[in-house]
Amino acid sequence: MSLSLHAHELRPAALALQEVVPGEFNVTWRVPAQGDLRLSLDVVFDQQSQPRSLPTALFAGGYYVERWRASHPNGFVDSTITIDGLENTLTDALVRIQWLDGREQVARLLPDSPQMRVENKAGKKEIANMYFVLGVEHILLGIDHLLFVLALMVLVTGTKQLVTTITAFTLAHSITLAASVLGLVSIPQGPVEAVIALSIVFIAVEILHKLEGRSTLAIRKPWLVAFAFGLLHGFGFAGALSDIGVPAHEIPLSLAVFNLGVEAGQLAFIVAVSILMLTLRKLPSVHQWEVRTGHSASVASALPVAYLVGGVSALWLVDRTIALVI
């Protein structure tokens, strides 16, 4: 069943064409889905393309996946590919074409530009721009990762400790992201997503411990905990990147700029939260409260942040754990 899903469905669709014999390609088309409902998106090739097999389809992992074989006299070079219906969504579509001689092209189609012209090979600039934007989008749309960073910001004390902690988190997820993409380590995404939710619950509880005056390892050395959990979050980033795929001839470039995009998005979030906190502290009512109680605005906000972040992540933990056993 095909249906336009709600606007909050922002995962990208993905089209992969892999040449298996000269002029013939295995086609894989993945569309975001919820249950047995999918976004109303369809691939349209030019008139020179011919189907060589009947399509097979299934719903798996939150996607509608369709596979078939198609041929094109020019190997699709200089042809057009259109994602019909993309203009009616908020999502994008990632296209990856691989030829027998090792050439590859990647492209990102948007609602306002749902068509592409196939070239012989994607340039470095095109790849860099695409994967940087994907990295920024992934972190800013990854609410669980942002809540973890927010909880760390509340847990730490002072700018120096914040810089050390965020640096440790960045270094850790960069390591596992690279190791996973390069095929050195492979972990199923289901358990990873569940443990990511658990990591957020853990930090939320540590915030409460800090407010109670306790001194735990996470409070004394938050950078150590950030590094440990950062390794897990890196596998989460890798799962998203593996869904997208990377061009084989530009793996280091794709990996590097995707990671830079993640870091840029993360830094933007930290700066935005910091500015918000500084702005709140300048409000007369907040300043008077600080003088009267002897507590800072950051202390006042820590309790609701701990309960909000902890509550949401606990729900995720239950939901993701149930998904593992069903």
Rank of each mutant, 00 (worst) to 15 (best):
S2R: 09
L5E: 02
L5T: 03
H8G: 03
E9N: 08
R11P: 04
A13R: 00
A13L: 04
L15T: 10
L17M: 12
V20I: 09
G23T: 04
F25Q: 07
V27A: 07
R30D: 13
R30L: 10
V31G: 01
P32Q: 07
Q34E: 12
G35L: 06
L41H: 05
L41T: 05
V43S: 01
F45E: 04
R52P: 03
T56Q: 11
A57Q: 14
F59P: 00
Y63E: 15
R67L: 01
H72I: 15
P73A: 08
P73L: 12
N74S: 15
V77I: 14
D78H: 13
D78M: 06
S79N: 15
I81R: 00
T82P: 12
N88T: 06
V95L: 12
Q98E: 15
R103M: 04
A107Y: 05
A107C: 05
L109P: 06
S113Q: 14
A122H: 10
G123W: 11
K125T: 13
I127R: 03
M130S: 06
Y131G: 09
V133R: 07
L134S: 04
L134P: 02
H138N: 01
L140A: 01
G142S: 04
H145P: 13
L146Q: 07
V149N: 06
V156P: 04
K160D: 03
K160V: 10
Q161W: 00
L162Y: 03
T164C: 08
T164I: 05
T164H: 06
T164L: 13
I166G: 01
T167P: 07
H173N: 06
S174R: 00
L177I: 09
L177A: 11
A179W: 14
G183S: 14
I187W: 14
E193C: 10
V195G: 00
V195S: 00
A197P: 05
A197R: 01
I203V: 15
E206Y: 03
I207H: 05
K210A: 11
L211P: 05
E212C: 09
T216G: 08
I219Q: 06
P222K: 06
W223S: 14
F227M: 09
A228G: 11
L231V: 02
G234D: 13
G236L: 05
A240T: 03
G245R: 06
V246W: 12
P247C: 11
H249T: 15
P252A: 14
N259Q: 13
N259W: 13
G261M: 12
G261C: 10
G261R: 05
V262F: 04
A264L: 15
G265E: 09
L267C: 08
A268F: 12
A268S: 12
V271H: 09
A272E: 15
A272W: 03
V273M: 10
S274G: 09
L278D: 09
L278M: 15
K282F: 15
P284K: 01
P284W: 04
V286I: 14
Q288C: 00
W289Q: 15
H295M: 15
S296W: 00
A297H: 13
A297P: 09
A300T: 12
V305S: 14
V305Q: 00
A306P: 06
G311D: 08
V312Q: 02
A314K: 01
V318L: 12
A323I: 13
V325Q: 00
I326K: 02
